[in-house]
């Protein structure tokens, strides 16, 4: 299909060629300057033995598995709420979307203060309401740091998911509802049998974005915790970036990239399968 050609060309230049280059690099040792040395599988070997790599991998999975579904459920609920004919729904939509475009650095600084153990607003409010009697060291503890960062990222992304779901909701033809109504389907049934299935492509999109987020929220992680304490909030991409640019171990970073790519491709194909193939495509005219 000729209309599909220009896009793969752009991707070829900026994604696919670099990916092969990466694959090649993962068998080498390089630090931007020295000659490329072929080291075989050494980088991969190192990767398997590296506890920090496994920790970052685990965090990435948690980040995705806990963050995306929560954000999507919230987004669907919000989208249903603001899709109604109520006063000021445009205002609500805008407010919910508002955090998404904000500069991550600014968000990071504010949330860092919100989470602060001694002077942060969240602890202040929780304690004023009598919910807790001892302040929680959100970002300053191994147990709380990752959930805290995930909550911040959900806060930022949920409005965006809502917009996507909203777009999906509005493309659902009205006749389907009318027909269902004539058949006497209850609102709940209409939601389960019409809205939800037809939202599948949008939900699929949100999942994909969620996957991307679980590694591009790297600037948020950087600003809020820099991967700490320990490596408890380190995600694969921040670890890759660290290895490439801070430790200057490009080959090693490339090996992790290859692993990450394969893993995410696997996840995506599962998500794709569950959403009925073809990137969640549905054809309800068939």
């Amino acid at each position: 299909m000729e209309y599909d050609l220009p896009v793969p060309c752009v991707f070829a230049v900026y994604r696919i060629i670099p990916m092969f280059w990466n694959l090649l690099l993962s068998f080498k040792k390089w630090n931007f300057l020295s000659a490329n040395i072929w080291v075989g599988l050494k980088n991969y070997n190192m990767m398997i033995k590296d506890p920090v790599f496994w920790e970052s991998f685990r965090n990435t999975v948690i980040y995705f598995a806990a963050g995306s579904p929560t954000a999507i459920i919230f987004a669907i609920l919000m989208a249903l709420l603001v899709n109604q004919n109520i006063r000021g729904r445009n205002t609500y939509r805008s407010i919910i979307f508002l955090p998404y475009p904000l500069t991550t650095v600014a968000i990071g600084i504010i949330w860092k203060w919100l989470y602060n153990e001694k002077v942060g607003l969240i602890n202040y409010v929780l304690r004023s309401l009598g919910i807790i009697d001892k302040n929680i060291p959100f970002l300053d503890s191994f147990n709380w740091a990752l959930p805290s960062v995930i909550i911040t990222s959900i806060w930022q992304v949920v409005g965006f998911f809502m917009i996507i779901i909203l777009t999906g909701l509005q493309s659902i033809p009205e006749q389907l509802y009318e027909a269902a109504e004539l058949d006497g389907a209850s609102p709940r049934k209409r939601f389960y049998y019409i809205t939800l299935p037809l939202l599948k492509p949008s939900i699929f999109l949100c999942f994909i974005i969620g996957i991307i987020n679980s590694f591009t929220m790297f600037d948020l992680v950087y600003v809020m915790t820099n991967g700490g304490p320990g490596h408890s909030t380190e995600i694969l991409v921040s670890y890759i970036y660290k290895n490439a640019f801070t430790f200057s171990r490009i080959g090693y970073a490339a090996a992790i990239t290859v692993f990450l790519f394969l893993f995410l491709l696997f996840i995506t194909s599962i998500v794709n399968k569950f959403s009925g193939e073809e990137a969640g495509g549905v054809n309800y005219y068939e």
Binding site: D4, I208, I211, L265
Partner: peptide
């Protein structure tokens, strides 16, 4: 195949392919 290429392309974090992209 094209859908796979698309999905695959999103999966590659841009941060990690930035050096070749820069050279290109």
């Amino acid at each position: 195949a094209i859908i796979l290429v698309y999905l695959g392309s999103i999966m590659i974090p841009f941060q990690t392919t930035i050096i070749p992209a820069f050279l290109i």
